[in-house]
Simulated scan of single mutants.
Amino acid sequence: MANFDMNLLPIALAIFEERSVSAAARKLNMSQPAVSIALNKLRTALSDPLFVRTSHGMEPTPRAVTLISPTRDILQRIHTDVLASEVFNPATTSRKFTIALSDIGEMTFLPKVLDRFQRDAPGASVASVSMTPLELNVALENGEVDLAVGYFPDLKNRNLFQQRLFSHDFICLLRADHPIRSRKISMEQFLKLGHAVIKAEGRSQELFEQLLIKKKIQRRIVLSTPHFMSIPFLIASSDLVVTVPRAVGASFAQFSNIRLVEPPLEIPTFDLRQHWHRKYHKDGANVWLRTILAEMFSGD
């Protein structure tokens, strides 16, 4: 039985139900000779004629009758457990989704994502994590992280898919009642002011710093910090200026005594993308998560 061909079972079932080799062939979309050959193989394997031609059609032997019930069970289990696609229902899921977010990700993405979850997946939860590129590659592969969303130039694993969501740029922040009142700061003002500089784990801030080095622009740095969250309090109570990704600046301006000012030089934009592993490309939950992110943020 180690060499038994399981593909013969559907043919036996079709002959049993149709009581005819030719009718079974039509049902299975096979040729009649192919069904006859398969029946002969089955007879040899089980040492029984299985079906006998009578005036009422192909009648099953007792051995064939005992074969049919387990055959139906086997084929049904294959259909439901193996072949059927898993249907993900966000409305009933209690799954925790883990998203790796870059430095600006939580401010840009999480509020809208949580609002969408409350409407469409009220039983689900979200975990935001921060990892090194090496750790993140492994976490995406083993399913510890569902998506990496943001600016991740170091994610270059060939087994990772990616989708661009939108392009982003930079903005300067001043306190609302700062002496500089214009909507765009001049280069002269930019160089005279004291600057706060964020040296965060994320890579997006590096783009601005590298541009300044390339153009040989030297600021007067008064404060360096690894944390974005202290920036609104520092800027609101000083004459300092800081340059941050626009989404960060827009978030701070909503809740603090902060004003947005265009920078004095043209700064290249950068793309925010979502990344996922090839293993989970067809996973229903992963498909749903990245689909709603694309709906909410593509083209922003």
Rank of each mutant, 00 (worst) to 15 (best):
T98A: 06
F88V: 12
F117V: 06
K96T: 15
E86W: 05
P122T: 08
R116C: 09
P111D: 06
R95M: 13
T108E: 05
Q76H: 14
R63D: 10
R77M: 12
D115Q: 11
R72P: 05
D115C: 03
L75M: 14
A91P: 01
K96V: 14
P111T: 05
L83I: 14
R116Y: 14
I104G: 07
T93A: 08
G123A: 13
L110F: 00
A100G: 01
S94A: 09
P90N: 07
H79K: 14
P111Y: 02
D73V: 14
A91E: 13
F88A: 14
E106L: 02
N89T: 13
P111M: 04
S85V: 12
A124E: 07
S69T: 11
E86G: 10
D115I: 00
L110T: 11
R95V: 12
G123I: 12
A121P: 06
F109I: 15
G105N: 00
V65Y: 02
A124R: 10
L83V: 10
D103A: 14
Q118K: 13
N89H: 13
T98D: 07
V87K: 14
L110E: 04
R72I: 10
R72D: 06
G123D: 09
R95W: 08
T98E: 07
V113C: 06
S69F: 03
E106C: 07
L83E: 15
N89Q: 13
D115M: 09
